[in-house]
Design a protein around this nucleic acid. Structure first.
Lengths: 122, 122
DNA sequence: ATAACTGTTGCAAAATATAGAAACTATTTT
DNA sequence: AAAATAGTTTCTATATTTTGCAACAGTTAT
């Protein structure tokens, strides 16, 4: 087939297959994890939690936000499977349960950052 | 200090420091990368681009979306430094430039997924 | 020149995410 | 019992994303 008939081929035939349900689920799962990570302060929270467990009000103070905000961020991270919580008396202690996400965050400073520089320059 | 005076300490003193400008920038950069990844179809695109270069209309067909949508997704991924593009005659060929992001996506199926199961059960 | 094709951009509507304050629960101290 | 503290939830306003369509620009074939 000629290279200039791609759109027509695409519309009339089905050489392009649909996503399977499994693929759909997997991509949604991954996207959900990334969505939880898509906020600067939630990233910062995870970096703090890498050092040691923190309670909500400590993190709220460290981030300079209301405790309701900090609590919501932590809920989002927990639902994404990135942190865990445990009641300790009056406090609620959050801990990092998926340290791998921070290793991968370093990816942003290597490959990705140099790509962006290239993109800006050229 | 007693454990129940945390809030007061937080409000009156400054044992909790502000984020530095450097930390702010780093967290924003990482969050931006994750924002680009925070969409199921963009994840799927990256998986396809891992196999080989694709042009826009092929990816649009594979994903089952309008080419304008596919083009916008690819622009987002490019701005984030995750893919690169190159004109080839009438076609625009996109390639994966930061393969590390897919390794880290696998993180979602190991640590993270098991954490979410635990969270749902317990 | 005209027509067909690839890709990007602009626009408006719909959907989603965020922030801030207040209300609420539960625990601990007095 | 009453007051203070830690944390979650609810509500509303605002901001950001996403989507779908149409218009547009550039390239190639007829």
């Amino acid at each position: 087939m000629s290279i200039r008939t791609l759109d027509k081929v695409v519309k009339n035939c089905n050489i392009y297959r649909m996503m399977t349900e499994d693929e759909k689920r997997r991509c949604e799962l991954r996207a959900n994890m990334f969505k939880a990570l898509a906020h600067p302060l939630r990233i910062y929270m995870l970096e703090k939690l890498k050092e040691r467990p923190w309670c909500v009000c400590e993190l709220a103070a460290e981030l300079g936000v209301d405790k309701s905000i900090a609590s919501k961020y932590l809920t989002i991270l927990k639902d994404a499977g990135l942190v865990g919580m445990q009641k300790r008396g009056i406090l609620v202690e959050y801990t990092l349960t998926a340290p791998c996400v921070l290793n991968l965050a370093a990816c942003a400073e290597s490959d990705v950052l140099s790509n962006r520089k290239k993109a800006l320059l050229g």
